[in-house]
Design a protein around this nucleic acid. Structure first.
Lengths: 252, 252
DNA sequence: GTGTTTATCGTCAGGCAGACGACTATGATC
DNA sequence: GATCATAGTCGTCTGCCTGACGATAAACAC
């Protein structure tokens, strides 16, 4: 209850980012290699300190831009500008989570369409997209044979929470479109759901569901055959943000 | 990217609590009167500084105990001990949210059964339960005629977010039982939903829904007539935490 | 006993999802 | 150019769940 300004313990406040995208039918997360101790050389989530005059969401948007070049999609601006979806995830403040000092990290979740290539201060070798299962496993080997150590700090937990948030949120919101380019087909959107959930969905029922939900998809009039097969209608995300009734995730 | 410990700006970190309960058919929130500037004399959410060796959830549980005497229900302990449900809500860090210094507040949401009486350091006149609509309105008069000013700081926003979280979360989880005593009837649970959502629900359909959801309710064998009318079966919360399919909130 | 209140069981129609058949329109292959 | 493989799109059918609502049961107040 005391508000004596000299009595509060000093904290450092950071933002960490769970940046997710769908590449090659897999849900992937962005990881950066740490260049300094602690956990030097280990992979971690991108992030950094909140500046003195910055709001938390501003800090997250700035870090996102620095790491990926993505502009965060400002919810106040209804323009579909292919920017990433960015939202606060949770805050992590275990006293021992950083061995150097007391750091409270406000984690954010960003969802982005497939991107050209990651850049971490211009150094591509220090940033990569990796399937989330690979980043979440405690030890083992990546697909290319490189040994994989767990993420630094408590970032495995943060990533896990972010993935779970994304998986549950595409059930009842139109957030899955954040993984798609501005114009996309029903099949591409379905493959997003399949990658995020790790399941196979019936194309016919999925088509009926998404085209039958008012405000979810808006046809642009164009078609594409970029997936092969019969040309598919192109859609843009509609204004609806909540799906009611929700998309049902299959059991197991 | 820089981790120079001397370079980070200093922050104060607090926890603020949105404590909700259901009293007299209304969703109520706990407010405390501020005894010092800024916002002296205004109502605010309970909260306080995080201590140097404390985790965020520990700090929230400590503040909850100090303000209400409630023990937080530790998710690791499966015992139904009538403790409050406590979860992290969101973090608020606008640089101007506290005029004195840079304060980042990690808000938590607590749901509690109806309590005897609030206590704020033993001083009951400085703590009260009030219907959330009353606390959320920007100005006006309470039911007893006292003028009501908006909550201090950004607490109106925090309370609003907490109420919205509670309203949506009882749809798809068994959280509504956190508002009930250890043993309760279907009708009492229904009145919780009605108070939180501010709607009327059909008693017959509600009864069918909750008793037909496996793991939601466990009959204790006892009955009660404390609500008048025909004796009702008593239940305890079952192990299920997720409701699938969810309880549907009526339109409008 | 009569009325009131709350609890509980049942019935019925409409909506939606899962399973799956059928047809369409492309490009690739022979 | 016929055939095939691939995706997309439209329908049908069945079962489950919900909303609307009738009916019965068991207490209390008078």
């Amino acid at each position: 209850m005391s508000y004596d300004p000299s009595a509060y313990p000093p904290f450092a406040v950071t933002v960490d980012l769970v940046v997710l995208t769908v590449r090659r039918h897999a849900l992937c997360g962005l990881a950066v290699r740490r260049g300094e101790p602690p956990f030097q050389g280990r992979w971690a989530l991108p992030g950094g300190f909140v500046r003195a005059d910055e709001d938390l969401s501003q800090a997250a948007a700035r870090e996102l831009a620095e790491e990926t070049g993505l502009r965060a999609h400002d919810p106040a601006v209804p323009v579909q500008d292919n920017g990433a979806h960015l939202e606060q995830l949770a805050t992590y403040g275990d006293p021992k989570r950083d061995p150097r000092m007391r750091v409270v990290s406000v984690a954010h979740l960003a969802l982005a369409p497939d991107l050209p290539a990651p850049r971490a201060g211009g150094d591509a070798s220090n940033a990569r997209w990796a399937p989330v299962e690979e980043l979440l496993q405690q030890a083992g080997f990546a697909r290319d044979g490189d040994p994989v150590a767990p993420l630094a700090f408590d970032h495995t937990q943060i990533l896990s929470d972010g993935v779970e948030r994304a998986r549950s949120k595409i059930e009842y919101s139109s957030l899955a479109t954040a993984f798609c380019p501005t114009e996309f087909t029903v099949g591409e959107l379905r493959r997003v759901y399949e990658a995020v959930w790790g399941v196979a969905l019936d194309p016919r029922n999925f088509h009926r569901k998404v085209t039958g939900t008012p405000g979810f998809l808006v046809p642009t009039g164009g078609t594409t055959t970029r997936q092969g097969g019969r040309p598919a209608q192109l859609f843009r995300a509609g204004g609806a943000t909540l799906l009611n009734p929700p998309m049902l995730r299959p059991e197991v």
